[in-house]
Design a protein around this nucleic acid. Sequence first.
DNA 1: TTAAATTATTGTCCAAATTACAATAATTAA
DNA 2: TTAATTATTGTAATTTGGACAATAATTTAA
Lengths: 233, 233
Amino acid sequence: MSMYRIDFNDFFTSAFSVDCILFGYSDGEIKALLIKRAMQPFENLWAIPGDLIYPDEDLEQAAERVLFELTGLNNIAMHQSQTFGKPNRHPQGRVITISYFALLRIEDFEVKASSWAGDVQWVSLKNMPDLAFDHNHILSSTYEMLKLKLQNEPICFDVLPERFTLNEFQQLYEFAFEQAFDKANFRKKIKHIPLIAHDEKQQNVKHRPAKLFSFDKIAYFEGIEQNRYTFKM
Amino acid sequence: MSMYRIDFNDFFTSAFSVDCILFGYSDGEIKALLIKRAMQPFENLWAIPGDLIYPDEDLEQAAERVLFELTGLNNIAMHQSQTFGKPNRHPQGRVITISYFALLRIEDFEVKASSWAGDVQWVSLKNMPDLAFDHNHILSSTYEMLKLKLQNEPICFDVLPERFTLNEFQQLYEFAFEQAFDKANFRKKIKHIPLIAHDEKQQNVKHRPAKLFSFDKIAYFEGIEQNRYTFKM
DNA sequence: TTAAATTATTGTCCAAATTACAATAATTAA
DNA sequence: TTAATTATTGTAATTTGGACAATAATTTAA
Protein backbone atom coordinates (compact mmCIF):
# COMPACT_ATOMS: atom_id res chain seq x y z
CA MET A 1 0.00 0.00 0.00
CA SER A 2 1.27 3.36 -0.91
CA MET A 3 2.98 5.68 1.57
CA TYR A 4 0.40 8.35 1.23
CA ARG A 5 -2.65 6.24 1.83
CA ILE A 6 -5.49 8.56 2.68
CA ASP A 7 -8.97 8.14 3.94
CA PHE A 8 -11.33 6.03 1.87
CA ASN A 9 -13.74 8.92 1.44
CA ASP A 10 -11.11 11.16 -0.05
CA PHE A 11 -11.25 9.01 -3.13
CA PHE A 12 -14.82 9.91 -3.84
CA THR A 13 -13.80 12.98 -5.74
CA SER A 14 -13.98 11.73 -9.29
CA ALA A 15 -16.70 11.59 -11.83
CA PHE A 16 -17.23 9.07 -14.52
CA SER A 17 -18.89 9.42 -17.83
CA VAL A 18 -19.84 7.31 -20.76
CA ASP A 19 -19.02 8.30 -24.29
CA CYS A 20 -21.18 6.71 -26.93
CA ILE A 21 -19.73 6.20 -30.33
CA LEU A 22 -22.51 5.51 -32.77
CA PHE A 23 -21.19 4.09 -35.99
CA GLY A 24 -23.38 4.04 -39.00
CA TYR A 25 -22.95 3.31 -42.65
CA SER A 26 -24.25 5.05 -45.69
CA ASP A 27 -22.89 5.93 -49.10
CA GLY A 28 -20.25 3.30 -48.71
CA GLU A 29 -18.68 4.97 -45.74
CA ILE A 30 -18.52 4.41 -42.02
CA LYS A 31 -19.62 7.48 -40.14
CA ALA A 32 -19.83 8.43 -36.51
CA LEU A 33 -22.54 10.53 -34.96
CA LEU A 34 -21.08 13.68 -33.46
CA ILE A 35 -22.52 16.65 -31.65
CA LYS A 36 -21.40 20.22 -31.72
CA ARG A 37 -20.83 21.34 -28.17
CA ALA A 38 -23.01 24.28 -27.18
CA MET A 39 -21.15 24.99 -23.98
CA GLN A 40 -17.76 25.27 -22.42
CA PRO A 41 -15.34 23.60 -22.35
CA PHE A 42 -14.56 23.09 -26.03
CA GLU A 43 -17.56 25.15 -27.06
CA ASN A 44 -18.34 24.84 -30.77
CA LEU A 45 -16.09 21.88 -31.23
CA TRP A 46 -17.43 18.58 -32.45
CA ALA A 47 -17.48 15.84 -29.86
CA ILE A 48 -18.60 12.31 -29.17
CA PRO A 49 -21.92 12.40 -27.34
CA GLY A 50 -21.48 11.45 -23.73
CA ASP A 51 -22.75 12.23 -20.31
CA LEU A 52 -21.86 11.81 -16.71
CA ILE A 53 -23.15 8.65 -15.12
CA TYR A 54 -25.68 9.05 -12.34
CA PRO A 55 -24.53 7.72 -9.00
CA ASP A 56 -27.03 4.87 -8.99
CA GLU A 57 -26.89 4.09 -12.67
CA ASP A 58 -25.31 1.06 -14.26
CA LEU A 59 -22.77 1.71 -16.99
CA GLU A 60 -24.68 0.13 -19.84
CA GLN A 61 -27.84 1.79 -18.68
CA ALA A 62 -26.09 5.14 -18.92
CA ALA A 63 -24.85 4.37 -22.39
CA GLU A 64 -28.33 3.40 -23.52
CA ARG A 65 -29.75 6.55 -21.99
CA VAL A 66 -27.33 8.73 -23.95
CA LEU A 67 -28.19 6.86 -27.14
CA PHE A 68 -31.89 7.27 -26.47
CA GLU A 69 -31.65 10.97 -25.73
CA LEU A 70 -29.77 11.54 -28.93
CA THR A 71 -31.62 9.30 -31.33
CA GLY A 72 -34.80 8.19 -29.66
CA LEU A 73 -33.63 4.64 -30.25
CA ASN A 74 -34.30 2.01 -27.64
CA ASN A 75 -33.21 -1.57 -27.29
CA ILE A 76 -29.98 -1.18 -29.18
CA ALA A 77 -27.19 -3.20 -27.63
CA MET A 78 -24.26 -1.03 -26.66
CA HIS A 79 -20.83 -2.62 -26.43
CA GLN A 80 -18.15 -1.57 -24.04
CA SER A 81 -14.91 -0.56 -25.62
CA GLN A 82 -12.18 1.01 -23.48
CA THR A 83 -11.82 3.34 -20.54
CA PHE A 84 -9.87 6.57 -20.74
CA GLY A 85 -8.62 8.29 -17.65
CA LYS A 86 -5.63 10.55 -18.08
CA PRO A 87 -5.76 12.89 -15.07
CA ASN A 88 -6.03 16.01 -17.21
CA ARG A 89 -8.28 14.83 -19.97
CA HIS A 90 -11.16 16.93 -18.64
CA PRO A 91 -10.37 20.54 -17.77
CA GLN A 92 -12.99 20.73 -15.03
CA GLY A 93 -11.90 17.83 -12.88
CA ARG A 94 -10.99 14.22 -12.88
CA VAL A 95 -13.39 12.52 -15.21
CA ILE A 96 -12.78 8.97 -16.27
CA THR A 97 -14.79 7.98 -19.29
CA ILE A 98 -15.92 4.59 -20.43
CA SER A 99 -16.56 4.33 -24.13
CA TYR A 100 -19.43 2.33 -25.54
CA PHE A 101 -20.31 1.82 -29.14
CA ALA A 102 -23.12 0.63 -31.32
CA LEU A 103 -23.44 0.05 -35.01
CA LEU A 104 -26.56 1.45 -36.63
CA ARG A 105 -28.20 1.70 -39.99
CA ILE A 106 -28.28 5.43 -40.59
CA GLU A 107 -31.46 5.33 -42.62
CA ASP A 108 -33.33 3.54 -39.85
CA PHE A 109 -33.94 6.59 -37.71
CA GLU A 110 -33.91 10.32 -37.35
CA VAL A 111 -31.39 12.02 -35.14
CA LYS A 112 -33.05 14.30 -32.61
CA ALA A 113 -30.76 17.08 -31.52
CA SER A 114 -32.74 17.48 -28.30
CA SER A 115 -31.12 19.40 -25.50
CA TRP A 116 -27.75 18.11 -26.41
CA ALA A 117 -26.26 20.57 -28.68
CA GLY A 118 -26.82 22.96 -31.48
CA ASP A 119 -25.92 20.49 -34.11
CA VAL A 120 -25.79 16.76 -34.58
CA GLN A 121 -24.25 15.16 -37.62
CA TRP A 122 -22.95 11.99 -39.14
CA VAL A 123 -19.29 12.51 -39.95
CA SER A 124 -17.22 10.19 -42.10
CA LEU A 125 -14.29 8.61 -40.33
CA LYS A 126 -12.20 9.58 -43.35
CA ASN A 127 -12.83 13.20 -42.79
CA MET A 128 -12.67 13.71 -39.07
CA PRO A 129 -12.05 17.21 -37.70
CA ASP A 130 -10.27 17.96 -34.44
CA LEU A 131 -12.63 16.92 -31.70
CA ALA A 132 -13.11 18.09 -28.13
CA PHE A 133 -11.22 16.49 -25.24
CA ASP A 134 -9.33 13.33 -26.27
CA HIS A 135 -12.18 12.33 -28.51
CA ASN A 136 -10.12 11.72 -31.63
CA HIS A 137 -8.18 9.15 -29.71
CA ILE A 138 -11.29 7.59 -28.23
CA LEU A 139 -12.93 7.41 -31.62
CA SER A 140 -10.08 5.66 -33.37
CA SER A 141 -9.53 3.16 -30.55
CA THR A 142 -13.19 2.38 -30.51
CA TYR A 143 -13.30 1.85 -34.25
CA GLU A 144 -10.54 -0.71 -33.82
CA MET A 145 -12.57 -2.37 -31.08
CA LEU A 146 -15.62 -2.44 -33.33
CA LYS A 147 -13.64 -4.28 -35.97
CA LEU A 148 -12.15 -6.66 -33.46
CA LYS A 149 -15.56 -7.53 -32.07
CA LEU A 150 -17.11 -7.90 -35.50
CA GLN A 151 -14.48 -10.53 -36.18
CA ASN A 152 -14.82 -12.41 -32.93
CA GLU A 153 -18.34 -12.02 -31.64
CA PRO A 154 -21.73 -12.16 -33.32
CA ILE A 155 -22.49 -8.49 -32.73
CA CYS A 156 -23.37 -8.11 -36.40
CA PHE A 157 -26.79 -9.53 -35.54
CA ASP A 158 -27.43 -6.67 -33.15
CA VAL A 159 -27.53 -4.29 -36.06
CA LEU A 160 -28.96 -6.44 -38.81
CA PRO A 161 -32.74 -6.66 -38.92
CA GLU A 162 -34.20 -9.79 -37.40
CA ARG A 163 -34.55 -11.25 -40.89
CA PHE A 164 -31.88 -10.32 -43.36
CA THR A 165 -30.50 -11.33 -46.71
CA LEU A 166 -27.05 -12.74 -47.08
CA ASN A 167 -26.15 -9.66 -49.06
CA GLU A 168 -27.11 -7.36 -46.22
CA PHE A 169 -24.99 -9.51 -43.97
CA GLN A 170 -22.08 -9.22 -46.33
CA GLN A 171 -22.47 -5.48 -46.81
CA LEU A 172 -22.20 -4.89 -43.10
CA TYR A 173 -18.72 -6.40 -43.12
CA GLU A 174 -17.84 -4.64 -46.33
CA PHE A 175 -18.71 -1.29 -44.84
CA ALA A 176 -16.96 -1.89 -41.55
CA PHE A 177 -13.78 -3.20 -43.13
CA GLU A 178 -13.99 -0.95 -46.13
CA GLN A 179 -13.41 -3.64 -48.66
CA ALA A 180 -15.44 -5.72 -51.02
CA PHE A 181 -15.77 -9.46 -50.65
CA ASP A 182 -16.60 -12.04 -53.23
CA LYS A 183 -20.20 -13.15 -52.79
CA ALA A 184 -19.66 -16.82 -53.25
CA ASN A 185 -16.68 -16.88 -50.94
CA PHE A 186 -18.44 -14.89 -48.27
CA ARG A 187 -21.17 -17.48 -48.20
CA LYS A 188 -18.66 -20.24 -47.71
CA LYS A 189 -17.03 -18.31 -44.91
CA ILE A 190 -20.23 -17.96 -42.93
CA LYS A 191 -21.26 -21.58 -43.39
CA HIS A 192 -20.28 -22.34 -39.80
CA ILE A 193 -22.62 -19.69 -38.37
CA PRO A 194 -25.99 -21.19 -37.46
CA LEU A 195 -28.63 -19.39 -39.53
CA ILE A 196 -32.26 -20.22 -40.00
CA ALA A 197 -33.38 -20.06 -43.63
CA HIS A 198 -36.95 -18.86 -44.00
CA ASP A 199 -39.34 -19.40 -46.88
CA GLU A 200 -39.96 -15.68 -46.88
CA LYS A 201 -38.28 -13.48 -49.44
CA GLN A 202 -37.23 -9.90 -49.78
CA GLN A 203 -40.09 -7.55 -50.71
CA ASN A 204 -40.32 -4.58 -53.03
CA VAL A 205 -37.08 -5.01 -54.87
CA LYS A 206 -36.94 -4.69 -58.63
CA HIS A 207 -35.04 -7.85 -59.22
CA ARG A 208 -34.96 -11.40 -58.02
CA PRO A 209 -35.63 -11.23 -54.31
CA ALA A 210 -33.20 -12.85 -51.94
CA LYS A 211 -34.10 -15.37 -49.31
CA LEU A 212 -34.37 -14.15 -45.74
CA PHE A 213 -32.32 -15.60 -42.92
CA SER A 214 -32.18 -15.10 -39.21
CA PHE A 215 -29.54 -15.83 -36.65
CA ASP A 216 -30.08 -19.06 -34.76
CA LYS A 217 -29.18 -17.88 -31.27
CA ILE A 218 -30.11 -21.11 -29.61
CA ALA A 219 -27.90 -23.25 -31.80
CA TYR A 220 -25.17 -20.67 -31.51
CA PHE A 221 -25.10 -20.60 -27.73
CA GLU A 222 -25.35 -24.37 -27.56
CA GLY A 223 -22.25 -24.57 -29.69
CA ILE A 224 -20.48 -22.03 -27.50
CA GLU A 225 -21.45 -23.78 -24.27
CA GLN A 226 -20.13 -27.07 -25.47
CA ASN A 227 -16.92 -25.50 -26.60
CA ARG A 228 -17.43 -26.97 -30.05
CA TYR A 229 -17.48 -23.61 -31.68
CA THR A 230 -15.92 -20.19 -31.85
CA PHE A 231 -17.24 -17.33 -33.90
CA LYS A 232 -14.67 -16.27 -36.46
CA MET A 233 -14.91 -13.97 -39.44
CA MET B 1 -30.37 15.40 -21.06
CA SER B 2 -32.09 13.76 -18.18
CA MET B 3 -34.87 15.37 -16.22
CA TYR B 4 -33.00 15.25 -12.99
CA ARG B 5 -29.82 16.90 -14.17
CA ILE B 6 -27.95 17.98 -11.09
CA ASP B 7 -24.92 20.10 -10.41
CA PHE B 8 -21.66 19.01 -11.99
CA ASN B 9 -19.98 18.72 -8.63
CA ASP B 10 -22.56 16.29 -7.31
CA PHE B 11 -21.09 13.73 -9.64
CA PHE B 12 -17.77 13.76 -7.90
CA THR B 13 -18.92 11.22 -5.40
CA SER B 14 -17.51 8.06 -6.85
CA ALA B 15 -14.24 6.25 -6.61
CA PHE B 16 -12.25 4.38 -9.19
CA SER B 17 -10.11 1.39 -8.65
CA VAL B 18 -7.92 -0.82 -10.73
CA ASP B 19 -7.97 -4.56 -10.35
CA CYS B 20 -4.86 -6.31 -11.56
CA ILE B 21 -5.16 -9.81 -12.78
CA LEU B 22 -1.74 -11.38 -12.93
CA PHE B 23 -1.75 -14.53 -14.95
CA GLY B 24 1.14 -16.87 -14.67
CA TYR B 25 1.89 -20.33 -15.86
CA SER B 26 3.55 -23.22 -14.12
CA ASP B 27 2.99 -26.97 -13.99
CA GLY B 28 1.05 -26.80 -17.18
CA GLU B 29 -1.62 -24.58 -15.73
CA ILE B 30 -2.66 -20.98 -15.93
CA LYS B 31 -2.89 -19.42 -12.52
CA ALA B 32 -3.91 -16.07 -11.20
CA LEU B 33 -2.29 -14.28 -8.31
CA LEU B 34 -4.81 -13.71 -5.54
CA ILE B 35 -4.65 -12.13 -2.13
CA LYS B 36 -6.51 -13.07 0.99
CA ARG B 37 -8.29 -9.99 2.25
CA ALA B 38 -7.20 -9.01 5.75
CA MET B 39 -9.98 -6.50 6.25
CA GLN B 40 -13.64 -5.85 5.75
CA PRO B 41 -15.50 -6.09 3.49
CA PHE B 42 -15.11 -9.72 2.45
CA GLU B 43 -12.52 -10.34 5.13
CA ASN B 44 -10.71 -13.65 4.68
CA LEU B 45 -11.99 -14.14 1.18
CA TRP B 46 -9.63 -14.42 -1.75
CA ALA B 47 -9.66 -11.48 -4.09
CA ILE B 48 -7.97 -9.99 -7.10
CA PRO B 49 -5.40 -7.46 -5.95
CA GLY B 50 -6.55 -3.97 -6.63
CA ASP B 51 -6.48 -0.51 -5.21
CA LEU B 52 -8.20 2.78 -5.50
CA ILE B 53 -6.71 5.15 -8.01
CA TYR B 54 -5.19 8.32 -6.66
CA PRO B 55 -6.82 11.50 -7.88
CA ASP B 56 -3.82 12.56 -9.93
CA GLU B 57 -2.80 9.13 -11.11
CA ASP B 58 -3.11 7.74 -14.59
CA LEU B 59 -4.92 4.41 -14.93
CA GLU B 60 -1.98 2.42 -16.21
CA GLN B 61 0.25 3.99 -13.64
CA ALA B 62 -2.12 2.80 -10.93
CA ALA B 63 -2.14 -0.70 -12.36
CA GLU B 64 1.65 -0.78 -12.44
CA ARG B 65 1.81 0.50 -8.90
CA VAL B 66 -0.41 -2.32 -7.66
CA LEU B 67 1.70 -4.83 -9.53
CA PHE B 68 4.87 -3.38 -8.05
CA GLU B 69 3.56 -3.35 -4.51
CA LEU B 70 2.56 -6.94 -4.79
CA THR B 71 5.45 -8.44 -6.67
CA GLY B 72 8.24 -5.92 -6.70
CA LEU B 73 8.15 -6.17 -10.48
CA ASN B 74 8.68 -3.08 -12.56
CA ASN B 75 8.39 -2.44 -16.25
CA ILE B 76 5.80 -5.06 -16.94
CA ALA B 77 3.26 -3.88 -19.47
CA MET B 78 -0.23 -4.00 -18.11
CA HIS B 79 -3.12 -4.32 -20.54
CA GLN B 80 -6.53 -2.87 -20.02
CA SER B 81 -9.36 -5.32 -20.09
CA GLN B 82 -12.85 -4.19 -19.13
CA THR B 83 -14.55 -1.86 -16.71
CA PHE B 84 -17.07 -3.05 -14.15
CA GLY B 85 -19.46 -0.68 -12.51
CA LYS B 86 -22.67 -2.15 -11.21
CA PRO B 87 -23.93 0.36 -8.64
CA ASN B 88 -23.83 -2.14 -5.79
CA ARG B 89 -20.71 -4.05 -6.58
CA HIS B 90 -18.85 -2.46 -3.67
CA PRO B 91 -20.67 -2.40 -0.34
CA GLN B 92 -19.02 0.82 0.82
CA GLY B 93 -19.96 3.08 -2.04
CA ARG B 94 -19.94 3.46 -5.76
CA VAL B 95 -16.66 2.10 -6.97
CA ILE B 96 -16.10 1.52 -10.63
CA THR B 97 -13.18 -0.73 -11.32
CA ILE B 98 -11.02 -1.00 -14.37
CA SER B 99 -9.37 -4.34 -14.82
CA TYR B 100 -5.84 -4.67 -16.09
CA PHE B 101 -3.92 -7.82 -16.70
CA ALA B 102 -0.42 -9.03 -17.30
CA LEU B 103 1.00 -12.40 -18.13
CA LEU B 104 4.04 -13.42 -16.10
CA ARG B 105 6.43 -16.28 -15.74
CA ILE B 106 5.80 -17.44 -12.21
CA GLU B 107 9.35 -18.61 -11.64
CA ASP B 108 10.73 -15.18 -12.59
CA PHE B 109 9.98 -13.50 -9.29
CA GLU B 110 8.99 -13.81 -5.69
CA VAL B 111 5.65 -12.58 -4.51
CA LYS B 112 5.97 -10.17 -1.60
CA ALA B 113 2.87 -10.13 0.54
CA SER B 114 3.78 -6.65 1.77
CA SER B 115 1.08 -4.66 3.45
CA TRP B 116 -1.54 -6.11 1.21
CA ALA B 117 -2.90 -9.04 2.94
CA GLY B 118 -2.19 -12.00 5.13
CA ASP B 119 -1.72 -14.31 2.22
CA VAL B 120 -0.83 -14.16 -1.42
CA GLN B 121 -1.07 -17.18 -3.66
CA TRP B 122 -1.14 -18.43 -7.20
CA VAL B 123 -4.43 -20.16 -7.77
CA SER B 124 -5.22 -22.34 -10.75
CA LEU B 125 -8.06 -21.09 -12.90
CA LYS B 126 -9.42 -24.63 -12.83
CA ASN B 127 -9.84 -24.54 -9.13
CA MET B 128 -11.11 -21.10 -8.33
CA PRO B 129 -12.89 -20.52 -5.02
CA ASP B 130 -15.60 -17.94 -4.47
CA LEU B 131 -13.90 -14.58 -4.55
CA ALA B 132 -14.73 -11.25 -2.96
CA PHE B 133 -16.90 -8.67 -4.72
CA ASP B 134 -17.65 -9.59 -8.35
CA HIS B 135 -14.14 -10.89 -8.78
CA ASN B 136 -15.06 -14.28 -10.22
CA HIS B 137 -16.79 -12.47 -13.01
CA ILE B 138 -13.93 -10.04 -13.52
CA LEU B 139 -11.44 -12.87 -13.59
CA SER B 140 -13.19 -14.93 -16.19
CA SER B 141 -13.90 -11.97 -18.47
CA THR B 142 -10.32 -10.92 -18.23
CA TYR B 143 -9.08 -14.38 -19.08
CA GLU B 144 -11.17 -14.22 -22.23
CA MET B 145 -9.65 -10.84 -23.00
CA LEU B 146 -6.15 -12.23 -22.48
CA LYS B 147 -6.83 -14.92 -25.05
CA LEU B 148 -8.39 -12.48 -27.47
CA LYS B 149 -5.40 -10.17 -27.26
CA LEU B 150 -2.92 -12.99 -27.54
CA GLN B 151 -4.58 -13.86 -30.83
CA ASN B 152 -4.77 -10.37 -32.23
CA GLU B 153 -1.95 -8.32 -30.78
CA PRO B 154 1.71 -9.04 -30.19
CA ILE B 155 1.42 -8.90 -26.43
CA CYS B 156 3.22 -12.23 -26.16
CA PHE B 157 6.47 -10.31 -26.55
CA ASP B 158 5.74 -8.34 -23.42
CA VAL B 159 6.09 -11.47 -21.37
CA LEU B 160 8.70 -13.39 -23.31
CA PRO B 161 12.29 -12.50 -22.52
CA GLU B 162 13.94 -10.16 -24.99
CA ARG B 163 15.59 -13.15 -26.63
CA PHE B 164 13.60 -16.33 -26.67
CA THR B 165 13.53 -19.71 -28.32
CA LEU B 166 10.74 -20.69 -30.63
CA ASN B 167 9.75 -23.32 -28.11
CA GLU B 168 9.31 -20.74 -25.38
CA PHE B 169 7.18 -18.79 -27.79
CA GLN B 170 5.08 -21.82 -28.52
CA GLN B 171 4.72 -22.80 -24.87
CA LEU B 172 3.27 -19.44 -24.03
CA TYR B 173 0.39 -20.09 -26.40
CA GLU B 174 0.09 -23.67 -25.26
CA PHE B 175 -0.32 -22.61 -21.66
CA ALA B 176 -2.74 -19.80 -22.39
CA PHE B 177 -4.95 -21.89 -24.64
CA GLU B 178 -4.42 -25.08 -22.71
CA GLN B 179 -3.59 -27.21 -25.66
CA ALA B 180 -0.53 -28.57 -27.34
CA PHE B 181 0.53 -27.49 -30.82
CA ASP B 182 2.65 -29.31 -33.32
CA LYS B 183 6.12 -27.80 -33.39
CA ALA B 184 6.55 -27.79 -37.12
CA ASN B 185 3.12 -26.33 -37.72
CA PHE B 186 3.55 -23.66 -35.10
CA ARG B 187 6.67 -22.50 -36.88
CA LYS B 188 4.80 -22.20 -40.13
CA LYS B 189 2.06 -20.25 -38.45
CA ILE B 190 4.41 -17.62 -37.07
CA LYS B 191 6.35 -17.21 -40.32
CA HIS B 192 4.59 -13.91 -40.97
CA ILE B 193 5.72 -12.39 -37.67
CA PRO B 194 8.93 -10.42 -38.12
CA LEU B 195 11.55 -12.02 -35.88
CA ILE B 196 15.26 -11.41 -35.75
CA ALA B 197 17.32 -14.61 -35.64
CA HIS B 198 20.47 -14.25 -33.57
CA ASP B 199 23.65 -16.29 -33.72
CA GLU B 200 23.38 -16.74 -30.00
CA LYS B 201 22.04 -19.95 -28.55
CA GLN B 202 20.33 -21.15 -25.44
CA GLN B 203 22.71 -21.70 -22.49
CA ASN B 204 22.87 -24.34 -19.79
CA VAL B 205 20.49 -26.82 -21.25
CA LYS B 206 21.33 -30.51 -21.30
CA HIS B 207 20.52 -31.04 -24.92
CA ARG B 208 20.93 -29.36 -28.25
CA PRO B 209 20.46 -25.66 -27.54
CA ALA B 210 17.88 -23.75 -29.53
CA LYS B 211 18.56 -20.61 -31.48
CA LEU B 212 17.48 -17.34 -29.91
CA PHE B 213 15.11 -14.94 -31.58
CA SER B 214 13.78 -11.52 -30.79
CA PHE B 215 10.74 -9.62 -31.97
CA ASP B 216 11.46 -7.15 -34.76
CA LYS B 217 9.36 -4.26 -33.52
CA ILE B 218 10.50 -1.91 -36.23
CA ALA B 219 9.55 -4.20 -39.07
CA TYR B 220 6.32 -5.04 -37.30
CA PHE B 221 5.18 -1.47 -36.90
CA GLU B 222 6.21 -0.61 -40.43
CA GLY B 223 3.98 -3.41 -41.62
CA ILE B 224 1.13 -2.18 -39.46
CA GLU B 225 1.51 1.44 -40.57
CA GLN B 226 1.37 0.53 -44.20
CA ASN B 227 -1.64 -1.67 -43.64
CA ARG B 228 0.17 -4.56 -45.24
CA TYR B 229 -0.08 -6.67 -42.16
CA THR B 230 -2.25 -7.80 -39.31
CA PHE B 231 -1.11 -9.88 -36.40
CA LYS B 232 -3.02 -13.15 -36.31
CA MET B 233 -2.46 -16.31 -34.34
C1' DT C 1 35.87 -41.86 -28.20
C1' DT C 2 31.63 -43.36 -29.25
C1' DA C 3 26.92 -44.46 -28.94
C1' DA C 4 22.57 -43.39 -26.95
C1' DA C 5 19.45 -39.96 -25.69
C1' DT C 6 17.37 -35.72 -26.28
C1' DT C 7 15.74 -31.88 -28.46
C1' DA C 8 15.89 -28.55 -32.57
C1' DT C 9 14.85 -27.90 -37.15
C1' DT C 10 13.25 -28.92 -41.71
C1' DG C 11 10.54 -31.45 -45.08
C1' DT C 12 6.61 -34.03 -47.12
C1' DC C 13 2.09 -35.49 -47.94
C1' DC C 14 -2.69 -35.00 -47.62
C1' DA C 15 -6.87 -32.61 -46.33
C1' DA C 16 -9.20 -28.43 -45.71
C1' DA C 17 -9.92 -23.71 -46.51
C1' DT C 18 -9.48 -19.71 -49.59
C1' DT C 19 -9.54 -17.37 -53.91
C1' DA C 20 -10.86 -16.15 -58.49
C1' DC C 21 -14.05 -16.74 -61.60
C1' DA C 22 -17.78 -19.09 -64.24
C1' DA C 23 -22.40 -20.99 -64.72
C1' DT C 24 -27.07 -21.32 -63.69
C1' DA C 25 -31.56 -19.85 -61.54
C1' DA C 26 -35.18 -16.68 -60.36
C1' DT C 27 -37.35 -12.59 -60.76
C1' DT C 28 -38.71 -7.87 -62.66
C1' DA C 29 -39.62 -4.64 -66.30
C1' DA C 30 -40.35 -3.63 -70.88
C1' DT D 1 -41.04 -13.14 -74.49
C1' DT D 2 -36.87 -11.22 -73.80
C1' DA D 3 -33.38 -8.39 -71.74
C1' DA D 4 -31.66 -6.97 -67.47
C1' DT D 5 -30.57 -7.75 -62.91
C1' DT D 6 -29.39 -10.04 -59.01
C1' DA D 7 -29.30 -14.54 -56.25
C1' DT D 8 -27.31 -18.77 -55.78
C1' DT D 9 -24.36 -22.60 -56.74
C1' DG D 10 -20.29 -24.75 -58.71
C1' DT D 11 -15.46 -25.58 -60.17
C1' DA D 12 -10.62 -25.45 -60.52
C1' DA D 13 -6.29 -23.57 -58.81
C1' DT D 14 -3.88 -21.96 -54.92
C1' DT D 15 -2.83 -21.48 -50.26
C1' DT D 16 -2.96 -22.85 -45.66
C1' DG D 17 -3.15 -26.23 -41.89
C1' DG D 18 -2.44 -30.70 -39.61
C1' DA D 19 -0.16 -35.24 -39.01
C1' DC D 20 3.89 -37.17 -39.06
C1' DA D 21 8.61 -38.39 -40.66
C1' DA D 22 13.47 -37.32 -41.35
C1' DT D 23 17.60 -35.12 -40.32
C1' DA D 24 20.80 -32.18 -37.47
C1' DA D 25 23.10 -30.70 -33.32
C1' DT D 26 24.25 -31.23 -28.83
C1' DT D 27 24.81 -33.51 -24.12
C1' DT D 28 25.59 -37.46 -21.29
C1' DA D 29 26.97 -41.86 -20.12
C1' DA D 30 29.47 -45.86 -21.23
